[in-house]
């Protein structure tokens, strides 16, 4: 192919040399335009841009932040107590002082509802962070070590992962009793398996990628390959797994509280359960926490989905 090109090109070149120089015009070179044609966009700034390009994701992220702040600020600034029994306001109707009425303890429902979110967020974030850390460490060790260590770790993971998580969570609940720590512990115990499998798979796959081989053959050191190629590429998948673990954990907490096996603290799940009993007299006490929980879950799910798309290098433009 190259030879053919040369053969056909040489007579032309020969002819060109006969043309006097003053017939040539210099091509104009617009520096601004050249810059615009090839801007340097790093992977993460591209991810950032693509995430914020998605308008619904931005809206849901904003809503999520508002709910998150509300859960921590509103109970602090609310003048109405939500502990002990307040006789004056037992089952109070909706009014200017009790926006959503009060429950059977006389607690202001609006304040209590926001307070209930704290447990959800805490369980969601703490268990997602812990299970991600444990999973990444074990998965990475397994993939790096390879050989027998890898096959032992992975057969343990494969056996454990097939155990339905709810069964384990409930068994731990029996042994450890009610409490937020119990739920987090149970969720971490069952959740890390997935992350470990994911991380291991990623690293094993990335190790044999062409660009890693290319980098190696160009003499790039192992540390640079790790920092520049393996970690950034694994981080995306881990981040997505992390964001999707949050709603999963929040759901589990709410579900356990709803069926009466959750924490002793106020939580959206237990409020919805209590709301069921008063749904004819105080429908807002069922509806309001339900909407808040559903909206939060929707936000986290959507943020996770958008993040996954934004992190996918295949969709990069």
């Amino acid at each position: 192919m190259d030879n053919d090109l040369l053969k056909t090109a040489s007579p032309i070149e020969f002819a060109l040399s006969d043309v006097p120089d003053d017939l040539f015009r210099r091509a104009s070179f617009d520096e601004d335009e050249a810059e615009a044609l090839s801007p340097h966009v790093s992977y993460w700034s591209d991810v950032w841009r693509r995430f914020f390009e998605n308008k619904s994701a931005v809206v849901f992220l904003t809503v999520f932040i508002i709910i998150l702040l509300g859960c921590y600020i509103i109970p602090l600034v609310s003048p109405l107590p939500i502990t002990g029994i307040i006789d004056d306001s037992i089952n109070a109707k909706m009014s200017s002082s009790h926006w959503l009425g009060a429950d059977k303890f006389g607690h202001d429902f609006f304040t209590k509802m926001w307070k209930g979110g704290q447990i959800s967020f805490m369980v969601g974030f703490v268990s997602a962070i812990l299970q991600t850390i444990i999973g990444v460490i074990i998965g990475a060790v397994s993939a790096y070590a390879g050989g027998r260590v890898d096959s032992v770790i992975m057969s343990i993971v494969n056996v454990l992962i097939a155990i339905p998580y709810l069964v384990i969570v409930l068994a731990i609940r029996v042994v450890a009793g009610a409490g937020t720590a119990t739920i987090i512990f149970a969720l971490v115990i069952t959740g890390w398996l997935n992350v470990a499998r994911l991380t291991r798979g990623q690293i094993l796959q990335l190790k044999t990628e062409e660009y890693v081989t290319a980098a190696k053959s160009m003499g790039v050191g192992a540390r640079t390959i790790l920092a520049r190629h393996l970690i950034p590429n694994t981080l995306g998948v881990i981040l997505v797994a992390f964001t999707l673990a949050i709603p999963q954990a929040m759901f589990s907490e709410a579900f356990l509280s709803f069926i009466g096996l959750g924490t002793n603290a106020v939580s959206w799940g237990s409020l919805i359960r209590a709301g069921m009993d008063v749904r004819f007299k105080h429908p807002q006490q069922l509806i309001a926490p339900s909407i808040l929980l559903a909206l939060t879950m929707l936000c986290v799910q959507l943020i996770g989905d958008t993040l996954r798309d934004a992190l996918d290098p295949k969709l990069r433009r």
């Binding site: 759901f251 709410a254 579900f255 069926i259 799940g269 919805i272 069922l286 559903a294 959507l302």
Partner: peptide, 14 residues
């Protein structure tokens, strides 16, 4: 998306 996100018990109570 709503179906995936809204917890089953919220939907059932509603």
């Amino acid at each position: 998306l709503v179906g995936v996100s809204v917890p089953s018990f919220v939907f059932a109570t509603m």
